[in-house]
Design a protein around this nucleic acid. Structure first.
Lengths: 138, 138
DNA sequence: ATAATTATATCGTAACATACGATATAATAA
DNA sequence: TTATTATATCGTATGTTACGATATAATTAT
């Protein structure tokens, strides 16, 4: 059973290796992780960043500051609690995140077009299923 | 049609966001990319690293040196051309790579177990299909 | 054989990145 | 009014990333 899981992971990493975008930007891993967090979660502030990356709040604050300077994020004050900051992706932030975590759309489209209709449907269904179930993880 | 691809990418990033391992190590993006390259490609030397990351050969050489010092990689001389170095992952290198690019096996197993037999089969088949097709990409 | 090419490695240097403790500020809660 | 919470900033230290210049050793071309 767990060999199933290992096999799935091998497929997973193969897919990413062969279909990711070319590595252009010199970007740090922490920055990518912060972009992912901000994209996928509602109401992310500096503290959530610190907890998620297991770093101190001041370091998290500096990451955010640099990322704002680079126009990857922008800040909004929480109207209900003005101590809090709410982070959002800018358009360049979305693009950087996309190029560093998604599959290359051209390649993906090409690969999908090589599949038969039934196979394409299987892929779609599988990804949908798995992403829905994934959200139930703690 | 391209909205299909965008949807697939949203599933893809959702799956990774919810099922990746917790972020423990402070590791750079370049280091992960090098680990990926060495794992997935045969016969990787310093020059392949430089080309893949679009950096100069001396920088690539220093990456490799540091990664060897940290016991993530080891070097072997190419017997057919002794100028060349062949890079390989050490066990710690494999583990670091796994924790930073694969899905958390516990979470994945848990999620897979929540699915019906047919659904599980669909996921398996889809990943297999896609990874096979992905290898035909340039 | 000698010269040119190729694959790596090293040195010097520079610019950032990363992280944390200590401290500060301002908003909210007790 | 005091405590707590959420950020922010300063000082400091270490690590990372990168490149040009230069060096070495193996292979290939002449």
């Amino acid at each position: 059973m767990s060999s199933n899981v290992k096999r799935l992971n091998e497929y997973w990493t193969d897919i990413y290796f062969h279909m990711h975008y070319p590595h252009k930007e010199k970007i740090s891993h922490q920055v990518i992780r912060i972009l992912q967090l901000v994209e996928k979660k509602e109401e992310v502030g500096v503290n959530e960043v610190a907890t998620y990356l297991q770093i101190s709040h001041n370091t998290a604050s500096e990451h955010v500051k640099r990322m704002v300077e680079k126009n990857l994020l922008f800040k909004e004050r929480d109207l209900l609690d003005e101590r809090r900051v709410l982070l959002h992706l800018t358009q360049p932030g979305k693009e950087v995140l996309h190029r560093n975590t998604s599959l290359d759309e051209e390649k993906l489209e090409q690969v999908m077009n090589q599949l038969a209709d039934k196979e394409r449907a299987v892929v779609e269904q599988a990804f949908k299923l798995l992403s829905e179930q994934a959200k139930t993880c703690l």
